[in-house]
Write a protein that binds this DNA or RNA. Structure first.
Length: 214
DNA sequence: CACCAGGCAAGTA
DNA sequence: TACTTGCATGGT
């Protein structure tokens, strides 16, 4: 049987799970902070960390920059990897304050590529974090690839499990309409599907909604 | 108890 | 270039 298109996979996931309402946050800045905190980390732990910052009214770039790395690490402790993430947040905050806000031109739609390069130049921001920021904080039409994406779509033979980030991303972006709303919902649905049916060790393939996708 | 989470960079060969 | 390892909390 012919392999189903990525758009029909999307329709199936949306019909099954509905809108996921990503990214839960009060501001683009909160999304960008969350994108760093959620690296290889359960989102519930990230929420605790963000709430700690909110309680202290510290969820603001210039205030966070004034904190010692030690204090910042203590606040984000529930998110795990707190020492590394404190450093990464500081690196990002410096970029955010010095380059990002200053250069309004970077925000225009046609400079997404330049902005992505800027984000990737920050130590601690890799492709998934950068693209999550672009899509969910800045509403740029960029497809986010994560571990679930590779696991699910390699199991369904859309690509090899060791596919590069860029190759996987290209497959989605070349085969889908270039729409922020679509990319937003699709990635969120992939995460939802992954959590429910495609964990590493005990995937529930028999009950997976994509079981008959071929 | 083991396993896992909306990764990334640094070290090694 | 291609692997491997460190980072760490909290939920299931």
């Amino acid at each position: 049987m012919m392999k189903k298109g990525l758009d029909s996979v999307y329709k199936k996931l949306y019909a099954r799970f509905g809108a996921q309402n990503w990214w839960p946050a009060d501001s683009p800045f909160e999304i960008m902070v969350g994108a760093i905190l959620t690296q290889n980390t359960n989102w519930l732990n990230v929420e605790k960390a963000i709430n700690n910052l909110k309680k202290e009214k510290l969820l603001e770039a210039r205030k966070m920059l004034k904190l010692s790395n030690r204090r910042l690490a203590a606040l984000i402790r529930p998110a795990g990897y707190y020492n590394i993430k404190a450093d990464r947040l500081k690196e990002f905050l410096r970029f955010f304050v010095n380059e990002f806000n200053a250069k309004e031109s970077l925000m225009s739609a046609r400079h997404t590529g330049a902005l992505r390069q800027g984000l990737l130049s920050v130590k601690g921001i890799g492709p998934e974090t950068a693209d999550s920021m672009l899509l969910y904080a800045l509403s740029k039409p960029v497809f986010v690839v994560d571990a679930y994406t590779k696991r699910i779509f390699s199991r369904h033979k859309y690509f090899q499990e060791d596919v590069s980030y860029d190759e996987a991303q290209k497959m989605f972006m070349q085969n889908l309409k270039n729409e922020v709303k679509l990319f937003n919902e699709y990635h969120a649905l992939i995460v939802r599907l992954g959590k429910d049916f495609c964990l590493k060790r005990r995937p529930k393939c028999e009950q997976c909604p994509l079981k008959d996708q071929k």
